[in-house]
Amino acid sequence: MAETVKDISRKNRKIYAPVVDIFETANNILIVADMPGVDEKSVDITLEKNLLTIHGMIDSTTHDNLELAFSEYGIGDYQRAFSLSDEIDRSNIKATVKDGVLKLILPKSERIKTRKIEVIKES
């Protein structure tokens, strides 16, 4: 894979795997990822064949005229990838981000959706 200028400049940055919850509803699979520092402009989601990749970029915040007294957490970009089965409707994946939480909605393809079968009273 060819490296872009952006890739090279980010080479030495730390990359963290964001923690995620994945749950399933009748029609969708939802992925919820904690990505503090990320907003809608700084997150990329790509789907290449079966591979869904989440990539979040962080501004390295420097605090003017302040020195770091102690640090309990590290700061870096985020990346995590998931392989999708054929049962996801790839053309309708949606993503939102709010307060540093990314939510991905992956609709199940029509043929595997849970169907409710109505029971009709026998006459």
Binding site: E24, E87, K108
Partner: peptide, 8 residues
Amino acid sequence: LGNLLEPW
């Protein structure tokens, strides 16, 4: 269905 998504 539970295995639809497996972290790569």
